[in-house]
């Protein structure tokens, strides 16, 4: 198993190892991003698989279309930790609106790494716009604040026409076939190679998805 890439079979093995890995009670709060995933297999082509789970994310901001222009250009990465506070247990907060998000970990044969896909809908089942998604706590707040947004994509600061891919765009889900949002995987292999350098990591199949989730969690709040 390479530290930077997976074949389709290795991805399947890594998913199985990830699902079978026991999570102790002590770990549940720290590893909430690891909970609730199940294996989804295409009914017609059984080699097409992904991990899937459904979570509810809270709407944490009102429609702030007016102030968007200013805040989107505000590269305030210093405030990164604020979202830790908002992600604290939500039990005793006043009920807010929720957006339901289907999250998927699917395999990209082009980039030979897992890809994070999601689709989202409101309480009435209507798909939510990217604007509405950005008003929830799905994305880490430093991302929400710094990205450049079009109706169909998100780009990180510094990305322009010359950058290969936007951070987030729409594409067909490789197993379900319907369009979803996905985080572009082009930066993943380099980052994975670095993270998987640790000696006992690369031999441990479950560690692949673990480490990959850690990488995704720099952008997506997986603890919701």
């Amino acid at each position: 198993m390479s530290s930077s890439h997976l074949t389709r079979d290795e991805f399947a093995a890594a998913c199985n190892a990830f699902l079978q890995r026991p999570i102790s009670n002590d770990e549940t709060s720290a590893l909430r991003g690891h909970l609730g995933w199940t294996l989804l297999t295409s009914p017609t082509v059984s080699s097409l698989r992904c991990l899937a789970r459904t979570v509810n994310v809270r709407v944490i901001r009102e429609d702030d279309t007016e102030s968007d222009e200013a805040s989107l250009n505000d590269l305030d990465v210093e405030e990164e930790d604020i979202d830790d506070a908002t992600a604290a247990p939500i039990s005793d907060q006043t009920p807010t609106t929720f957006v339901t998000v289907q999250q998927y970990i699917a395999y990209s044969p082009t980039f030979a790494v897992p890809v994070f896909y999601f689709s989202s809908h409101d309480a009435n089942g209507a798909p939510t716009s990217l604007e509405a998604i950005l008003r929830t706590n799905l994305f880490k707040q430093h991302v929400t604040r710094s990205v450049t947004r079009t109706a169909h994509s998100l780009s990180l600061p510094g990305e322009d026409a010359g950058a290969p891919f936007p951070l987030l765009s729409q594409g067909d889900h490789p197993v379900l076939g319907r369009p979803c949002w996905f985080l572009h995987p082009c930066g993943i292999p380099t980052a994975m190679a670095e993270l998987m350098e640790e000696p006992d990591m690369s031999t441990h199949s479950a560690a692949w998805i673990d480490t990959w989730l850690a990488l995704i969690s720099t952008v997506i709040d997986l603890r919701t």
């Binding site: 689709s119 079009t150 169909h152 319907r178 082009c186």
Partner: peptide, 25 residues
């Protein structure tokens, strides 16, 4: 839920460029 969010030409261009770059890769 089964379409891209909007039938805009801009969304279409974005999807096209994404495919083109993936093919290049």
């Amino acid at each position: 839920d089964k379409l891209l969010l909007s039938p805009s030409i801009e969304a279409c261009k974005q999807a096209f460029m994404g495919q083109l770059k993936e093919a290049d890769f």
